[in-house]
């Protein structure tokens, strides 16, 4: 049989390594939000994250290198009798220890820079309350209450006061740079300044029950002037319905118990169980991110929210007539 240049084990090792390399490289292609931070503090975290990856890859390279070298070289020979080497032990104890000390110092610095309160009093406060399975956002300084989509101005210090109404939740938008839990009975604070306009996705990251998967967050960071426009509109009570059908919708809303759970400011609907709907029409999604906010989706949602997001508290309204449903949709989508 023809002698092959590399034995089967060598080829096997090479194959395995290539596979791993391909996986790693191919994994680098898609956009990883943890590396696309849009806050100063998030950038600090990202720097540390990058450093940790560099060090990890170095360690992996050393270990894999020695492993593969040993697999290739140390076969079919007389084994050495060496049972230890104290100097080596000290070396590979002290070197990682030194590296870790350095890493620890960097980590303390970043911990402090991430958690410290804002220097000035210009910060915009938002009270973020986690509920099963939606978010409420209140801007006490602006008199705004909204849900699931967090609007913030860029280049302005933001302070989020994180609370929970029921179980433990966690507020994570990777592009902000870090997460913080919401523990019932406590308030945790996140301080940051967003430097780039854009929409940033996030999610609840502490398992909180049946619909943890659809407790999604969207942060919309806009210029100060756009934010001012938004907040001026948002702090107004609900706009008057502009059409007859929308007015019917409002009447239906008050009639069929929606008001028991939802608030529409400026009307008699002051329910606190579900999200505030005062400006529902201007939101991108329904139900904590599970559906895009379109009339068709809203109809499906109103008729059978349980079918879309099983386990939530909201009942279905399939028993309403088609006209009533259409009226509700017209009213709600008109709440800009």
């Amino acid at each position: 049989m023809k002698q092959r240049r590399f034995g089967s084990r060598t080829r096997g090792a090479f194959l395995a390594l290539s596979a791993l390399l391909v996986l790693t490289v191919s994994g680098c292609t898609p956009d990883m939000e943890s590396f696309n931070t849009v806050t100063d503090r998030g950038d600090d975290v990202r720097w540390l994250l990058n450093l940790s990856f560099v060090l990890s890859f170095i360690v992996m390279a050393i270990v894999f290198g020695i492993l593969i070298y040993s697999m290739l070289k140390f076969r079919n020979r007389q084994p050495s009798e060496r049972e230890g080497n104290t100097k080596l032990e000290i070396f590979w104890t002290a070197t990682p220890a030194a590296l870790l000390v350095v890493l620890f110092i960097f980590s303390i610095q970043t911990m402090n820079s991430v958690s410290k309160e804002h220097d000035d009093d210009d910060a915009l406060h938002v009270v973020v309350t986690g509920n099963q399975w939606w978010w409420s956002f209140e801007y006490p300084e602006l008199g705004i209450t909204t849900a699931n989509e967090l609007y913030v101005p860029t280049d302005r210090p933001i302070t989020l006061e994180l609370k929970s109404n029921d179980v433990v939740h966690s507020f994570w938008v990777p592009q902000i740079g870090w997460k913080l839990d919401m523990i019932p009975g406590r308030t945790n604070e996140m301080h940051f300044t967003v430097d780039t306009e854009g929409e940033y996705d996030g999610a609840c990251t502490e398992f909180c029950g049946a619909q943890h998967a659809w407790m999604r967050i969207k942060i919309v960071a806009t210029s100060t002037s756009d934010f001012d426009t938004w907040s001026a509109r948002e702090s107004q009570p609900a706009s008057e319905p502009s059409s007859l059908i929308a007015r019917d919708g409002r009447d239906t809303f008050m009639l069929v118990s929606c008001a028991a759970c939802h608030t529409i400011s400026g009307t008699e609907a002051q329910g606190q169980v579900g999200p505030d709907l005062t400006h529902f029409g201007s939101r991108d999604t329904i139900g904590g991110g599970v559906l895009e906010n379109t009339p068709e989706n809203l109809e499906a949602w109103l008729r059978d929210p349980q079918g879309i997001k099983p386990g939530i508290v909201m009942p279905g309204f399939d028993e309403l007539t088609d006209e009533q449903i259409a009226a509700l949709i017209a009213y709600l989508e008109g709440l800009h």
Partner: peptide, 30 residues
């Protein structure tokens, strides 16, 4: 055993990454 060394090293270095508190703040529960 050889695979163990390689795989455990990968798991081990990501573990050290989690010991870095701000990195944990970004990546825990994901």
């Amino acid at each position: 055993c050889l695979a163990f060394i390689a795989m455990f090293t990968i798991g081990g270095v990501t573990g050290v990454q989690f010991a870095i508190v701000p990195v944990d703040w970004q990546l825990t529960d994901s």
